[in-house]
Design a protein around this nucleic acid. Sequence first.
DNA 1: CATGAATGAGCTTTCATTCAT
DNA 2: CATGAATGAAAGCTCATTCAT
Lengths: 185, 185, 185, 185
Amino acid sequence: MDERRTDTREAIRSVALELFAEQGYDKTSLREISERLGVTKAAVYYHFKTKEEILLSLIEDFLAQVDDVVDWAQSQPATAAIRHEVLRRYSDLLGGRTTQLARFMQEGQAAIRDLAAGTEMRKRIDRLVGILATPGQPLPTQLRARVALMALHVGAFAGRDIDATDEQRRHAALQLAQEIVGPAS
Amino acid sequence: MDERRTDTREAIRSVALELFAEQGYDKTSLREISERLGVTKAAVYYHFKTKEEILLSLIEDFLAQVDDVVDWAQSQPATAAIRHEVLRRYSDLLGGRTTQLARFMQEGQAAIRDLAAGTEMRKRIDRLVGILATPGQPLPTQLRARVALMALHVGAFAGRDIDATDEQRRHAALQLAQEIVGPAS
Amino acid sequence: MDERRTDTREAIRSVALELFAEQGYDKTSLREISERLGVTKAAVYYHFKTKEEILLSLIEDFLAQVDDVVDWAQSQPATAAIRHEVLRRYSDLLGGRTTQLARFMQEGQAAIRDLAAGTEMRKRIDRLVGILATPGQPLPTQLRARVALMALHVGAFAGRDIDATDEQRRHAALQLAQEIVGPAS
Amino acid sequence: MDERRTDTREAIRSVALELFAEQGYDKTSLREISERLGVTKAAVYYHFKTKEEILLSLIEDFLAQVDDVVDWAQSQPATAAIRHEVLRRYSDLLGGRTTQLARFMQEGQAAIRDLAAGTEMRKRIDRLVGILATPGQPLPTQLRARVALMALHVGAFAGRDIDATDEQRRHAALQLAQEIVGPAS
DNA sequence: CATGAATGAGCTTTCATTCAT
DNA sequence: CATGAATGAAAGCTCATTCAT
């Protein structure tokens, strides 16, 4: 019943995610976060040592899920079917809880670039790319891996002007991404 | 003879582009721009009314070229071959003078979103998308249009970790983009 | 048997002294003190009402010892020999447990000036000076009293760059201080 | 007539010196400095890049004068008479424009220790000490050099409770300092 | 054309302190 | 005895922008 304990910390994360997604990391000030929460800035600093730590704490959730996908893939044979399944799982990720997060990571890369969070994110995406196309493979294959992921991103949050539900868009994007990395046969 | 007139203005644009591309629009201050130029901030303000105006002036170059591509396309029949040619022309654009600009527009979308420059940019990209897939067409086609453009972007500046020249990457990206929007036949 | 009572209080005093000596009173935060102790800030506040009270509690030790020296001196005739003995006793003080404390009082006078602790300290030093030179005596004598004390301070903690042991330095300083206040004869 | 040019910069230095001397470097905020000046904080930052730079700019004046004394001494034979003259010149310095500065450097050593300004200051004082006692000389001589300088400091600003004019105090302190380093003969 | 000087608003962060539990 | 949570005030600093000269 007494769930107050972690209430504020979670509330901060929640509000921060909302604002980061809305306006970007840079443009979101701690004043904004704390005001929308009805607490003081100092209260936020009680729960997180720095602004970046909020971001990190947010990102880690998503990154852990990406790691899961990659880890699973590495325990499987490197077949086309597995690659398709990787895309499907990553697509699911983008549609889940972390949608907003993923979006603002995509859109606000510049703002995050130098932060630890940015480095970490790039590392994980690289791992993911590495599953779809190992470093030794030819240029077109490399490119296809990256573009396939981009396709999923477009489906998840860059194509909202298209007249379709989120579901439909994500599904269509998955199809396309799978086609891009090559036939499953 | 008197080419002094635009000298400083051009220098500002040049330095600003460099810095915007390097660090993003937000993170580049007027102090930085003017210092790297050896001028005072006030001097910059003599040439541009606001910081955003510098960005706008930079973007307009690129946008005009995009408009040219779209205008040309609209004067042609809406065939697959034309769509391929549109992609080729846009790819050329990305490889030209405006590469840096295009990159930072891609990476720093969040920073620009609310600015007039951001609105303008989105409008033009929408026009371009409209050439590759008219609004009435089915979801997959819509998606393919957007992803094809993304592929070109990836080829131009997001795939620099791939072991290949810029030229090769852009060429491969064009091939892929054309494949994505559908066969030329 | 139950010595727990003062355990924490003593630990706080000990850590605080260490940090005050290292970084000065101002630059030492309660967070630092409590963290190095593995306790919460609130725990510190249970034992001391304010930060200054920690300082005061620390200083009182030293000040009491100074008082002892002065009290003893006042019960003796005002001879040169007594003055030399006073210097010897004060020198011993500086070499004892309270060295660190004395040092940071010397170096951080500005930080403490307005605090009650600062006032108190100045009062005691004034008493000490009063033993070495009564207010009525001529300027040079007054000065000698103050400089003699300074000499002891230099010997105790300001001359650590000299190649000698603490012992040797303090001994030499005592000799010099005694010479400064005048011959024992 | 138009002396406005450097007016503000000088005013900042002047007010800062006053406040630093009064309350110490740490306890003086930029808000205080700017408010007492009737300008905004940002105006101060226009003239000095950081708070420390104000301090540095203040200290350099004094340090340059100390250097002059040392440089002169090094061009002379290392006699007792020269050492006495060095003390006299340094005493004059302490009585001049820079009195306040010297005082707060003495009192606030802790606050400055880690700053570049602190390092610089210690370097110069060390040079001065080196004139009065070369590193190879025995412990008592080393000590006498340091204590002699301290005596001058006491005369300049730590003995204001003595009933005498600044002049008289400084003069008496010089006599004492010269006696401490040894006879001129 | 350009500068020197200044402003107002905002930022992230730290601190001593309080209090219910 | 001690903690977790929070606060109010302040700090140093940066930025886009303005304007008289």
